[in-house]
Simulated scan of single mutants.
Amino acid sequence: MPDRLLLDAMLGKLARYLRMCGYDAAYALDRGVEADDDLLAVATAEDRTLVTRDRQLATRAPRGVRIDSREVTDQLRELRRAGFELSLAGEPARCGRCNGPVEPIDEDASVPDYAPEPSETPCYRCRDCEQVFWKGSHWEDVRERIEGL
């Protein structure tokens, strides 16, 4: 299955889940793109599969995947049925906020007050937006949701 995706404006939560599964999942609203022709142009220019809830748009895309469900768990089920591999990566690879690449933080590095100490909990930083991540309760909640599909 493709690993470079573009998700339309109706699929922002799904984009975050896919990023946690290691997909390069660009989100239309992060790019300021909403119009169908603009979405198609971005998908083509960046060689991305367009994931959309819009039936007509999905058929117009060179590589389009239509999602019918509104709830993220059902959306994940649809993608799994379509052949997408859905499991959390061993280590975070993509930023849940901006989709940038994530890298481990050294144990002695300084982190924002909201983050745990890297010497106690492995942390990761987005190379693009500098958001700090770690595998905490949200990671486990997502793991359970995906395993329950």
Rank of each mutant, 00 (worst) to 15 (best):
R77F: 00
A93P: 04
L76M: 14
S69R: 13
S110L: 05
S69Q: 09
E46G: 07
G83M: 13
D68C: 05
T59W: 06
Q56I: 04
A45D: 13
V72R: 05
E78H: 12
L76W: 09
E103F: 09
T49C: 13
F84Y: 15
T49M: 14
T49F: 01
D37A: 15
L40R: 04
L57T: 08
V111I: 06
A58D: 04
D54T: 02
E71C: 00
A45P: 04
A61Y: 09
G64P: 02
A115F: 11
Q75L: 07
A45R: 15
E85S: 15
D38R: 15
S69P: 04
A61W: 08
R60P: 02
A58L: 07
A41G: 03
V65A: 01
E103M: 06
E85L: 14
G64E: 00
L39W: 04
S69I: 02
V51D: 04
D68P: 00
V111F: 07
S87W: 13
F84P: 09
R97T: 10
P92I: 09
E91L: 15
R77T: 03
T49W: 12
G96T: 13
A58P: 05
T44D: 14
D106K: 08
A115S: 04
E107L: 09
A93V: 15
G64S: 01
R60A: 13
E107W: 05
A61E: 03
E107F: 02
S69M: 05
G83W: 15
T59F: 00
T73R: 15
D106F: 01
A58Q: 10
E78P: 05
P112L: 04
I105P: 01
E46C: 01
L57Y: 02
E103P: 00
R77D: 03
Q75F: 09
I67S: 04
